[in-house]
Amino acid sequence: MHVRTAKDIGTFIRDQRKRQKLDQATLASLIGVNRRWVMEVERGKPRAEIGLVLKALEALGLDLSIDRREMPGSTRDALDIVDIDAIVRNAKGPAT
């Protein structure tokens, strides 16, 4: 799913909550917020605290992945791509 707005992520959270048969109060309890916060986020509240949104995703068993998309007229080359897995492997050093 491509998320471009607060409403998109709110819709996704609501959909996943319902699929898991959780009510708003239960999700709120898992996150440590009140039901009103869940209602506002599901409606696309643009100023929702990102840390709490991430906790909501975690409570639903979801991961957030960010991908770089091509921009029109972009001249990005291979040097602009960051491989976080390679960075972690290099930081750990050679396998023994």
Rank of each mutant, 00 (worst) to 15 (best):
H2E: 06
R4V: 04
A6R: 12
A6K: 11
K7C: 04
D8M: 04
D8C: 06
I9H: 09
G10K: 10
G10E: 05
T11S: 11
T11M: 08
T11Q: 09
F12R: 13
F12Q: 15
I13K: 03
I13F: 00
I13N: 01
R14N: 15
Q16K: 10
Q16A: 03
R17T: 07
K18C: 09
R19S: 14
R19H: 10
R19T: 07
R19C: 10
Q20W: 06
Q20S: 14
K21L: 11
K21C: 09
L22H: 04
A25P: 02
A25L: 02
A25V: 00
T26P: 10
T26W: 04
T26Q: 14
L27K: 02
A28F: 00
A28N: 07
S29A: 15
S29G: 12
L30K: 13
I31C: 01
I31D: 00
G32D: 03
G32H: 07
V33N: 00
V33E: 00
N34F: 00
N34E: 08
W37L: 05
W37S: 07
V38D: 01
E40G: 04
V41H: 08
R43E: 15
K45W: 10
P46E: 08
P46Y: 01
R47C: 05
A48N: 03
A48V: 00
I50R: 08
G51K: 10
G51H: 04
L52C: 07
L52P: 04
V53S: 12
V53L: 14
L54R: 05
L54H: 11
A56Q: 11
A56R: 08
E58D: 13
E58V: 01
A59S: 14
A59T: 02
L60K: 08
G61T: 03
G61I: 01
G61E: 09
G61N: 09
G61S: 09
L62A: 05
L62I: 01
L62H: 02
D63K: 12
D63H: 11
L64T: 04
L64G: 07
S65R: 09
S65L: 01
S65N: 06
S65H: 08
R68A: 13
R69D: 10
M71S: 15
M71E: 15
M71V: 08
P72V: 10
P72N: 09
P72H: 12
P72F: 05
T75P: 01
T75R: 13
R76M: 02
A78S: 13
A78Q: 13
L79H: 12
I81D: 13
V82C: 15
V82L: 15
V82P: 06
V82A: 15
D83A: 03
D83L: 06
I84S: 14
I84Y: 15
D85A: 14
D85S: 12
D85P: 03
I87Q: 14
R89A: 14
R89L: 11
N90M: 02
A91H: 09
G93Q: 04
G93S: 01
P94M: 02
A95P: 06
A95I: 05
T96N: 12
T96C: 05
